[in-house]
Design a protein around this nucleic acid. Structure first.
Length: 698
DNA sequence: AGCGGAACAT
DNA sequence: ATGTTCCGCT
């Protein structure tokens, strides 16, 4: 069966294209870069090197060529490509490693969230290699880092296993889609494939083990997305099945598992990530680690709001807490296996720094089982989202900056002069749709929309469709606000987010703003002042600590009390409908009852605001610039011309998505009825599946 | 090399 | 929204 999704359900776009944003569905440069990085074949042109996420472009021209090929822009050169990379600075996706030529560093925090929201940062995974970015694999489980080997990333097989093994990597094989996107077939891919070739079949080939069942086996990659069996997924996420009430219960992100004790903590299957196949995937564990290590708090960073939106469940680690806590968190999910291996416990961070790829350092210990009970109040790692526990409603004076509508060049032009470049006249006027986003943002049901970006408000198409389609309810989002961020804190970046700021800020920031941080109206300041003087690091740290209000029972996420906050903002807290805000269900049970309940509530959209800091944290400090923002918005629509490039076609591998929709259930609402949940799940599944395909156009 | 503004393109 | 293309400044 197809799920509705197939048909037409609207699904969260993000699902399809995590990376790409709303508007563009094409492959994004960072994505492409990751693809290259993961492939050994390209190590001579680009490779991980240095700290986490750091990579060096050994052959700029070649990279540019490849990129140009992928985008059908033969004129591409490093100068242009680098310009594009520079745009990532503001987005925090990437940073330049100062002092090293052609060396940049990914800010996985951001990426992760975006792509794999479900990741819980709480846990750690295994060790990390060095620079390689994390790859999320499955949902729930863990993350791993792909060391330098690209291939691994691609192939999920490894995942199945455990991280440890994978590291070794060696495998390579495939490239297939690696690059993923679509078409690489064309140029890039082709090249890639050359290397190894065979792409085409990966599916069959690998075989995988998986076991699982999905239908056929499909291989490794497939394991996850395309064909995940529903069962599996469900299980993981808590399936709908008879027993599985999990869905209901805590709607968390799939990945996280539901805590409810019930059963299925995570599932047996190791990998499942929905997205894996498609683009590059990060391992969750790795990511976590990465994140933790670097950032620790999500809060700080701000993930992009969008990212969270979709996954309300994400658990974010609590802010600042010492390692210990973290560890605990991590543990939760932990698969025992990993844990064992890790054994080390110690040093996460420190270890990381090393550059050994090996996993040795990994360490995370796992203390307890995932679902076992945990004493810690707020620490439930996976399951519940972070803040739940604590989020006070606060609103603090953050700095959100709202910006007035930008004006742009267009205006400028108008005023000032004509454009130099083109003589034509476009009509300029008109269109600024962009602004819309800011203001509103309410997304209701569809996360996706928000996710997508522009969506903010949007209800636009996607949303609508949802609603219309029938999914309307899914929404789940209601809470999102709540979640929000609570923590968000600050970090330096504070400012930066111009773009999002609005949107997101509104939601969460405001709302929660919090008490905790009280400190700072402006993050930075605060730090400086009170906290410390150091630069970034301090900031981060501060950040971490800052918040912390923990009253245990307090956090009503959104539901309970939202009044103030939400009210203020005007957001409708309830976007969705069905839900349940109030109290709804909290029943549950188990363990964390309270917590859990709250948890459930978790908002869908969690969005955090601030972002990045992390990067900086590292060594370079570059951060200062946060403010900039990019955003020109103007959209003019002028004529468009077509280009003609098309080249390719790729293998088609992909396709498999149609069928099985893996359900990820994360819905978030607490009270939401099962049905809704299920739906959501289904949708998610679908989305996931599709993810793989993601791109393909050109 | 690298940065970033602008205008233009999708 | 994400690049691409130019280009001037460091």
């Amino acid at each position: 069966m197809k799920t509705p999704g197939d048909t037409g359900f609207a699904f969260p776009e993000w699902a399809y294209k995590p990376e790409s944003s709303p508007g563009s569905r094409q492959i994004q440069l960072w994505h492409f870069i990751l693809e290259l990085l993961r492939k050994e074949e390209y190590h001579d042109v680009i490779a991980w090197q240095g700290d986490y996420g750091e990579f060096v472009i050994k052959d700029p021209d070649e990279v540019a060529r490849l990129w140009g090929a992928r985008k059908c822009k033969p004129q591409m050169n490093y100068d242009k490509l680098s310009r594009a990379l520079r745009y990532y600075y503001n987005k925090r996706i990437l940073h330049k490693t100062k002092g090293k030529r052609f060396t940049y560093k990914f800010n996985f925090n951001k990426l992760v969230l975006v792509n794999y929201p479900f990741i819980d940062m709480g846990s750690t995974g295994s060790s990390v290699p060095q620079s390689a970015p994390p790859v999320p694999t499955g949902a729930g489980t863990h993350f791993r880092f792909p060391p330098s080997t690209p291939s691994e990333v691609l192939s999920p097989n490894e995942d199945l296993r455990s991280p440890g093994g994978m590291f070794s990597s060696v495998t390579r094989r495939m490239a297939r889609g690696s690059v993923s996107d679509c078409s690489d077939g064309t140029s890039v891919n082709s090249e890639i494939e050359e290397g190894n070739s065979g792409a085409p079949d990966e599916r069959g080939e690998r075989g995988v083990s998986g076991g699982g069942g999905p239908g056929g086996g499909g291989g490794y990659r497939s394991i996850i997305h395309p064909r995940l069996s529903h069962e599996t997924l469900f299980r993981m996420y808590g399936g709908p099945g008879p027993g599985g009430a999990s869905l209901l219960a805590p709607p968390l992100s799939p990945a996280l598992s539901m805590t409810p004790t019930s059963h299925l903590p995570y599932t047996p299957s190791p990998t499942l990530s929905p997205m894996l196949g498609s683009h590059f995937s990060f391992n969750p564990e790795d990511m976590k680690r990465y994140l933790q290590a670097h950032t620790q708090s999500v809060y700080n960073y701000g993930l992009s709001p969008r990212a969270f939106l979709q996954y309300p469940n994400i658990v974010i680690p609590q802010p600042h807490r010492p390692a210990a806590d973290k560890a605990a968190l991590n543990a939760e999910r932990g698969t025992a296996e990993r844990a064992e291996r890790a054994a080390t416990a110690g040093g996460e961070r420190g270890g990381e720094r090393h550059h050994h790829p090996s996993l040795a350092h990994s360490a995370h210990h796992l203390p307890h089982h995932p679902h076992s009970a945990h004493p810690h109040p707020h620490s439930h790692p996976m399951h519940y989202p972070l803040h739940l526990g604590e989020e006070p409603p606060h609103m603090s004076p953050f700095k959100f900056k709202l910006q007035p509508p930008p004006l742009g060049r267009k205006q400028r032009e108008g005023q000032s002069q004509s454009k130099p470049r083109q003589s034509s006249l476009s009509s300029g006027s008109g269109s600024m749709s962009s602004t819309s986003g800011l203001g509103s943002s309410l997304s209701f049901g569809s996360d996706l929309s928000s996710a997508s970006g522009s969506g903010v408000i949007s209800a636009s198409s996607s949303t609508q469709s949802l609603s219309s389609a029938g999914l309307p309810k899914i929404k789940v989002e209601p809470i999102s606000d709540i979640e929000s961020e609570e923590e968000v804190e600050v970090t330096d970046i504070s400012d930066e987010d111009p773009d999002e700021r609005d949107e997101e800020y509104e939601h969460f920031s405001l709302r929660h703003s919090r008490a905790s941080d009280h400190q700072q109206p402006n993050h930075r300041l605060a730090n400086g002042t009170s906290a410390s003087q150091h630069h970034e690091e301090d900031l981060d740290e501060d950040v971490f600590k800052a918040p912390a209000p923990p009253p245990p029972g307090l956090m009503p996420f959104f539901s309970s009390q939202h009044p103030h906050s939400s009210a203020q903002r005007g957001l409708p807290a309830v976007k969705s409908e069905p839900a349940e805000p109030g109290e709804s269900n909290t029943s549950p049970s188990q363990t964390a009852a309270t917590g859990a309940a709250q948890t459930k509530c978790i908002p869908l959209k969690l969005r955090f605001k601030r972002r990045w800091s992390e990067d900086q944290r590292m060594e370079t400090s570059q951060e200062e610039s946060d403010d900039k923002k990019v955003r020109p918005e103007e959209e003019r629509e002028r004529g468009k011309q077509s280009n003609g490039c098309m080249e390719m076609e790729e293998d088609g591998t992909g396709s498999g998505e149609g069928d099985s929709p893996p359900p990820l259930a994360y819905e978030g609402s607490l009270g939401t009825p099962l049905a809704s949940h299920q739906r959501v799940s289904a949708e998610l599944h679908r989305a996931t599946a599709q993810l793989s395909l993601e791109n393909k156009d050109c």
